[in-house]
Simulated scan of single mutants.
Amino acid sequence: MESKLVLYDNYRKNNGSFTYYLEARETFNSFAFGSLCESIRHLAQTSPGNREVLLQVHHVYTDILKYFIARGSAESLSQVAGLPSRPADFLDDLDKAVIQYLETCGSEETW
C-alpha cells in the first residue's frame, strides 16, 4: 500500500514527492527519486497489470520527461539544485522501473 501512496503523491505533486521537489522547488531530491523508482518496481510485484496504477505511472513519467525537455538547455538545467551530473543515468533508472511495471500489464484486451 505504501508504494501506491508514493506513486499517488508524485501523481498529485504532493509536498515531499519527487515531482513536488522538482517542479515547485527546482530541486532534484535523490531520496524522493529513489522512493519513486522503488515504489514503481514494488508495484510491478504487488499490483501487476492494474490500469489505475499504469495510468499514474505513465502520468508521472511523462511529467518528469516534459520537465526536463522544457529545460533542455544546459543553463536552464543548471538551475535545478542537486541534479546529477549525468541526467541520462537517473532517467535510465526511472525508465527501467517503468518498463518493469509495463511488462506486468499484458495487452489492452485484459483491461
Rank of each mutant, 00 (worst) to 15 (best):
Y21S: 09
S17T: 02
A97V: 02
I69S: 01
Y61L: 00
A70S: 13
T46M: 02
S78K: 13
P87I: 05
G72Y: 15
F68W: 08
Q56H: 08
E103W: 07
E26P: 06
L43T: 04
N29G: 06
F31N: 06
A74M: 09
P48N: 10
R41C: 13
S73V: 04
I40K: 07
Y20F: 11
V53T: 15
F28D: 13
A24T: 02
H42V: 12
V57W: 12
R51Q: 14
I40E: 05
K96W: 00
M1R: 12
A24I: 01
P87E: 04
K4G: 03
G49E: 11
K4L: 13
F31T: 08
K66T: 07
S47C: 10
Q100W: 01
N10Q: 05
E52L: 15
L22W: 03
G82N: 00
P48M: 08
T19G: 01
E52K: 15
D95L: 07
Y11G: 00
E38Q: 13
Y11L: 02
E38S: 15
E2V: 07
A88Y: 00
T62Q: 04
K66A: 11
L36T: 01
L22A: 06
E75M: 10
V80K: 02
Y11N: 02
N50I: 06
P84E: 04
D63F: 07
Y20I: 00
Y11A: 00
F90C: 05
E23Y: 08
I64G: 03
G72L: 11
V60C: 05
P48A: 04
L5P: 01
V80N: 08
Q79T: 14
S17H: 04
L94F: 01
L91K: 02
Y67W: 07
T104L: 09
L77P: 02
A97R: 02
L65C: 00
S85G: 10
I69N: 00
D89W: 06
N50P: 07
G82K: 05
Q79H: 09
K96H: 08
L65K: 06
G106I: 14
L77I: 09
T62M: 15
S107P: 04
D93S: 10
S47G: 03
S76T: 13
L22K: 02
S3F: 06
L36A: 01
R12Y: 10
G49R: 14
A88W: 00
Y8K: 07
L55I: 10
M1T: 14
I64H: 04
N29S: 13
W111Q: 12
G49P: 12
A32C: 03
S85P: 03
S73K: 05
F33L: 01
E38M: 10
L94G: 06
S30Y: 00
S78L: 11
N50C: 08
R51D: 15
D92V: 11
D63P: 12
G34R: 05
L55K: 09
S35M: 12
R51H: 13
E108I: 14
T19A: 04
I69T: 03
R25H: 09
S85V: 09
Y11D: 02
L77A: 15
P48Q: 12
R51C: 07
D92W: 03
T19D: 03
A74R: 09
E109I: 11
G34P: 03
L7Q: 01
R25G: 01
Y67M: 10
P48V: 03
E103I: 05
R71F: 08
V6L: 05
V98F: 06
G72T: 11
D89F: 08
E109Q: 14
E23A: 09
V98G: 04
R41Y: 12
L36D: 00
L77Y: 01
A24Y: 06
